[in-house]
Amino acid sequence: MTVPVLEIIGLNKGFPVKNGFGRTVDEVRAVDDVSFSIAKGEVYGLAGESGSGKSTIARMIMGLERPTSGDILIEGRNLGGGMAAAEKRKLVQMVFQNPGSSLNPRRTIGQSLRVPLEAMGLAGRKIDARIGELLDMVQLPANFAERFPHELSGGQKQRVAIARAIAVQPRLLVLDEPTSALDVSVQAKVIDLLVDLGRELELSYLFISHDLSLMRNFADRIGVLYRGRIVETGRSDAVFENPAHDYTRLLIASVPVVTAEEEAVRPKIPLIDGEIPTAEALLALREQERRNPTSE
């Protein structure tokens, strides 16, 4: 069996809660025993709402946050085991949510793309050639190298961010809500590009999003995160057609849709006292029903 590109085993992250004297009094479990793996060329989607721990997982994979326990392996090599930062960067890169703030406004696009290439040890003409090549890969004209971020549209900026991320030829891209700041028509084109690049470069993606409709269409497999735990995982078709967990059903039921077909297959939102319940309230109620099945 081939080694997965990313393998996460029993990952935990707790943040200390301190009292007024700086003493740790409690711990928030942001990520709670999370395990999953991503195969070569696969798109794995992590779906979750704010506070679910999806960004913390991304930050740990990127080495921006140290896990409390658990292992993160890229192509079988443990990221925690004293791997040099430069080496990690060649394996995993990230595309952020807001291209407006992830590109340096005082650098031209060419200068921004030059940074990772120099870090790889390229020099001189080779860099310019590679910048042209990268822009071409993300379907931008070569003369964009001389432009500044403010001269670009949101979609173009995100293409530059993608070019910068693939510059070092990584194995895995972490995509943190890469299209949530874009119009839908632009979003579709950026995802088109990611799909094409994924095939061409055999890239794997960890796609983090709260847009379930997009996830259904883009990810091969998904994991649904709730309060730091993966409550449901499987092939996206299977999870969407037959959601097993109450939270997954509530999430899918809440998605605003544009066609009657979608409305027909979407689970109905459960109402408690005529109101849409919060996830906590719904799960608490279901738990209670499980304990007292006769009280219906």
């Binding site: 544009v258 297959v265 979407r266």
Partner: peptide, 16 residues
Amino acid sequence: LIAAVPRLTGGMRFGS
């Protein structure tokens, strides 16, 4: 505009 919205029922082909 409507075609660009990803569907909850899937079936949207991305890529060229």
